[in-house]
Amino acid sequence: MLTTASDLGKEASRLQNQDTTISSKSEIAVTLKNCSLSFGDVQVLNNVSLDIYKNEFVSILGPSGCGKSTLLRLMLDLLQPNAGGEIIYPSKDLSLGMVFQKPVLMPWLTAIQNIALPLTIGEKKFTKKEAKEKAEGALRLVGLQDFMNHFPHQLSGGMQQRIAIARALAADPTVLLMDEPFGALDEFTREKLNFELLRLWESPETSLSTVVMVTHSIQESVLMSNRVIMMSPRPAGVDDIIPVPLPSPREVGMEELPAFHQTVKELRKRVKHL
C-alpha cells in the first residue's frame, strides 16, 4: 500500500515491510504520488512518492540543493508538480503551517502582531479579538509571553525563530512543514528548540499531528523523528526511508543510546553511498 522511490527499486521489499508496521497503526496525513518537477530544462524532483502519517514526525534529509525545500513547497501548494504528479491530503479539516529557515518576521510588527498576521489575512476566519487571543495563546506556548510588544529587532535569533513557530501554531495547523527551521541557529539554541518543538508536537494543547521537517543535520533528524526520508542528489528522489527505533517521548540524553548511534551510522553510510 505504500509507494516509495520505486525508480531506485533497491531494498524496496525490506522498506515496505518496515513501513506497513507503521501504516497499519495510523491514517495517512499526506500522500505524494509520482511527483516530478522541472524548472525549464532542470529536473529538480524525480518521481517522488511518499506517504506521511498522522501523529508522525518525519525528517527529510539530503545533500544541500537537492530539492528538499522544493518538496515542501509542493506540499504547501506553492509549486505544482509536473503532469502526472499528485499531492493528496485525505483529511477534511486540514490546516497547514510553515516555518522557514529564516524567521521571516515583519520588522514593523510587534511579536504579537506578527503571530496574528496569518489569522488576519486571506479567508479571515477570526475576528480581531479572536486573532489576538489565539496569538497570545501561541506566544505562551513558546514561552515568550513577556515579549508580546517587542519588535523583532529587539529579540535574539532564537527568540525570533520561536515567534515564527508560534505564528505557524497560531492558525491551529494539523500539519506543520518546516524548512531547516533551526539551521541558522547556534548549537545551544538549536538543541533547546529541538526539544521545545517536540514538546509542542506531543502536547494536547496544540492541534498539531504531523510534522515534516527538512534538515541537513543527521543527528537532528534521528533525535526528533519517527522516520527519516533520505533524498538522493538532484534530480532528487526518495533514496530510502529509515525508521528511528528510539522510544518516545524523546528526551535529552537519548543521543547516548545505542539505537541513536546505530541509526546515525546507518544514515551516514547512505550519505557516503550517494
Partner: peptide
Amino acid sequence: EAWELFSTYK
C-alpha cells in the same frame, strides 16, 4: 519567503 508566507495563508 515572506511572499510564500502570505501565499500559504491565501
